[in-house]
């Protein structure tokens, strides 16, 4: 088997790997978005716990952020990968399920990334909340606002404004961290989709970008080509999302006085 040229390897279609690399980029994005959203949920809960002034909740949240920020992310991924099913099975049993409670690999992998990124998001959310001037909250209360109205009209927009730059940094972190799932081979299998006789979509297994580069490198024995392509695709993702976050920041700080 003679070595193939770059263009031959990077064809679109069954002969080449470009289509696989392209869809793998999609899965990387899906892993990152899902992981980031899980992180947002964990981060919000932990931030509320830290702000609650209720000692046990504060301690638990402190423990969570200290451990998850002090332990390598790869180790957390291994824990979920090797022990994931036993965790979910035991949680399932607590809620009365019997037998094996399994989760799709995609869910387990993104949950691991979410738990790690949540630890970083906690501090951003907490900081953004504390940056809201207490006087404004008092003023809103004096106007008769409370509960959801206060949250939606006064606190929410300002937390968003102060938190966005930090969140942008964490998003970049998560996007890069999503590459770690390649080590444990997270994949997403989508079933065949038919409309009548028409096959809209054949059953396909997606790997993330780095994993796909790894598989292609192993199969063609031309690692350099595929890793350098992965580098390029990651740069597109990070640059594109940096631009989006800048736009979002501009939107969130619109009408603010610049000093």
């Amino acid at each position: 088997m003679p070595a193939k040229s770059f263009l031959e390897l990077m064809q679109w279609g069954p002969q080449g790997w470009l289509d696989e690399m392209f869809f793998a980029t999609g899965l990387t994005l899906a892993v990152a978005v899902t992981g980031f959203l899980f992180g947002l949920a964990f981060g919000t809960i932990a931030a509320i716990a830290k702000l609650s002034r209720w000692r046990p909740a504060e301690l638990a949240a402190d423990g969570y952020t200290t451990v998850l920020r002090g332990v390598p992310d790869l180790l957390v991924i291994y824990l979920f990968y090797f022990g994931g099913s036993s965790i979910t099975t035991s949680i399932g049993h607590m809620f009365g399920a019997t037998g094996f409670v399994g989760l799709p690999g995609f869910f387990v992998g993104t949950l691991a990334i979410g738990i790690v990124s949540g630890a970083y998001q906690t501090e951003v959310i907490r900081g953004a909340f504390l940056a809201v001037p207490p006087g404004e909250i008092d003023a809103a209360r004096a106007f008769g606002m409370s509960g959801l109205g206060l949250l939606r009209r006064i606190i929410g927009p300002q937390v968003l404004r102060y938190g966005l730059p930090g969140m942008g940094n964490i998003w970049q972190l998560v996007l890069k961290e999503s590459a770690l799932v390649a080590v444990v081979g997270l994949s997403l299998t989508l079933p065949e989709l038919r409309l009548g006789d028409l096959v809209v979509f054949y059953e396909t297994r997606f790997s993330d970008l780095l994993r796909q580069a790894h598989v292609a490198a192993g199969s063609t024995r031309q690692p350099f080509v595929f890793y350098i392509t992965a580098v390029a695709f990651y740069l597109v993702l990070t640059t594109g999302s940096t631009w989006l976050f800048r736009r979002a920041e501009a939107w969130a700080t619109r009408g603010m006085r610049r000093v």
């Binding site: 890069k176 961290e177 999503s178 590459a179 770690l180 390649a182 080590v183 780095l210 580069a213 790894h214 690692p223 350099f224 890793y227 350098i228 992965a230 580098v231 990651y234 740069l235 990070t238 640059t239």
Partner: peptide, 11 residues
Amino acid sequence: RGTPLLVQLFL
């Protein structure tokens, strides 16, 4: 800064 360390390592 724009690419994962793991990719740099494998490259």
